[in-house]
Design a protein around this nucleic acid. Structure first.
Lengths: 239, 239
DNA sequence: ATGATAGCAATATTCCAATATTTATCCACA
DNA sequence: TGTGGATAAATATTGGAATATTGCTATCAT
């Protein structure tokens, strides 16, 4: 029996595959916390949720598994990577180590265009509210995008594609914890100030100060979550 | 639909999935150079080669793509990640940065058990020939495994699962270049000496010396390939 | 000759049904 | 009550057919 798939002969040549589209969506849902840590990613549920067949869904999950955003066990299926205080500590520590290198290199290589990009990114970020709601914390995709761009502008001058890619991956992993921290600390933490100080130190080429501020910036997420006494929903950790 | 529940064979719980098995095989074939950089990874070819259906093969490829050992373009399929002098330079540079951190931490945390493990790993490595053939260089899986274990023993004490995992990934990526370097320099390079010096410095907790030796060890691959004037088969680079 | 384009072959992607495995349930029995 | 073990249900994995897309080749108009 011939089954009609999506017979859409639109003029545009076939863009991204379904697998890629689903990958993007699941990834976003994990990072933003829509899909909770530890949540089981069963075939049938995902098929409905993302309106796709099993194959592309599984391909997406396999990619995510390689990035450690998803865990899997052979024959047992997939689930969202868990979170935990130990994992958080390792993540922050690793980010401090890695991003310190990227920061030092970026500053060392910094030129006028680099400065301009940072100033621009900061300016754009400062115009967007931290939370989508003014009452309480709510994920704001615009802010997140600009925040990522700001830090990317600072570290992106390190000259190593690999380093940049790994920083991005770690940042994505950290995003899940950051959402938690934001919901705890909102609206008391003034990230704008932290960013401004960091920017100034970078532009002034004050390497040691920039590194110290950067470490503090990263450590804050950990401090907020740990101080809150909120116990993380311990689940399977990817690594 | 009636479901068949009679499983013919049993007594043994279903081990790794076919997808995982194929993943392991393709990965090894890429790292050892059996599958050349840039080589097209077409469905039909892989299906035959690894004797599996399309689904598991594609799942394996998706995992490898996320590790940057394989590249893909939507609707165009997969191919082995390319190599190139630029990529090699970035890889070596990144490894120097990252592994320096792991090395310093490992030494700082080092205790007797750590020393013992290094000595043991070195001893085992030294008993196995570099090349499977004495005439010319030939990939020797035993040596490779023990070599990996030796460096793992040194860096594995850094206390960060993420750091260790990333070091491993970088080492795997570098393996393809190392095979090339080995075939060029064999039998003139005495890696045994390099390893011994590194081991001694580590055990003596001579941090700066160990770091210097480690950098030199990593840089050697680059030097060998670059000095040989051998042009790398430029292909698509993963990153 | 050059460039455009339709038709066709090759390949990549996707859906789905068949199969394998795990998980839950029930029952016999100590 | 609790334990082991069969059986059924649920779920995960896989193979292959069906579909979509790309890339090639032949043909034609300029």
């Amino acid at each position: 029996m011939p089954v009609k798939q999506k017979s859409s002969n639109d003029s545009r040549a076939g863009g991204p595959t379904i697998a890629t589209a689903v990958y993007d969506q699941i990834r976003r849902d994990i990072i933003t916390g829509v899909l909770a840590p530890g949540h089981k990613l069963g075939s049938t549920g995902l098929r409905e949720r993302y309106n796709a067949g099993i194959s592309p869904v599984r391909e997406a999950l396999n990619r995510l598994a390689a990035e450690n955003l998803v865990c899997f066990e052979d024959q047992k299926g997939f689930h969202v990577a868990g979170v935990g205080s130990e994992d958080l500590a390792d993540l922050i520590k690793t980010r401090c180590w890695i991003e310190e290198i990227a920061l030092r290199e970026s500053i060392a290589n910094g030129d006028d265009a680099w400065e301009d990009a940072i100033v621009l990114a900061f300016h754009r970020l400062s115009k967007v509210p931290r939370s989508a709601s003014s009452d309480s914390y709510e994920f704001n995709p615009d802010w997140e995008k600009l925040h990522h761009a700001f830090h990317g502008a600072i570290l992106g001058n390190c000259g190593s594609p690999r380093m940049i890619a790994y920083c991005d991956l770690l940042a994505d992993q950290a995003n899940r914890y950051r959402q938690l921290a934001a919901s705890i600390s909102y609206p008391n933490r003034s990230e704008g100030d932290e960013h401004q100080e960091l920017m100034n130190a970078a532009i002034e080429r004050d390497v040691e100060k920039a590194v110290a501020l950067h470490h503090a910036h990263l450590g804050k997420t950990n401090n907020i979550i740990m101080k809150s006494g909120l116990s993380l929903p311990e689940g399977q950790i990817a690594l």
